[in-house]
């Protein structure tokens, strides 16, 4: 491997933290879904790095599947969010707070 595996972990960790921060900080539903996408990519990086580090192909197959699932997740998520937008006219998660 061109760089020790621990570095890959560090980068992925930072990226993961960024994803979490984006999910939590932004007041826009779509940005939350985006944040989750970032977290998924961070996991993919670790998988690819591990595959290389252990030189076994499992990691690679895992990433391919993650990409597919991420796509479905976004589609389902956006479907609900667009539906909510058409219904309430806003993306702000604050006003989706009726249930007591």
């Amino acid at each position: 491997m061109i760089v020790p595996f621990s570095n890959v972990l560090v980068v992925a960790g930072i990226l993961f933290a960024l994803g979490v921060f984006c999910t939590v900080a932004r007041r826009n539903l779509i940005m939350i879904v985006l944040g989750i996408e970032i977290m998924l990519n961070a996991a993919s990086i670790v998988f690819v790095g591990a595959a290389l580090h252990l030189d076994s192909l499992d990691g690679q197959t895992f990433v391919l599947f993650i990409l597919a699932v991420a796509a479905t997740e976004v589609s389902v998520g956006l479907a609900i969010i667009v539906y909510a937008f058409r219904r309430t006219g806003s993306f702000d998660p604050a006003n989706f707070n009726l249930l007591r």
Partner: peptide, 10 residues
């Protein structure tokens, strides 16, 4: 338990 989604995620 009530409150905004993002607080929960946090």
């Amino acid at each position: 338990q009530t409150g905004m989604v993002q607080y929960r995620l946090l």
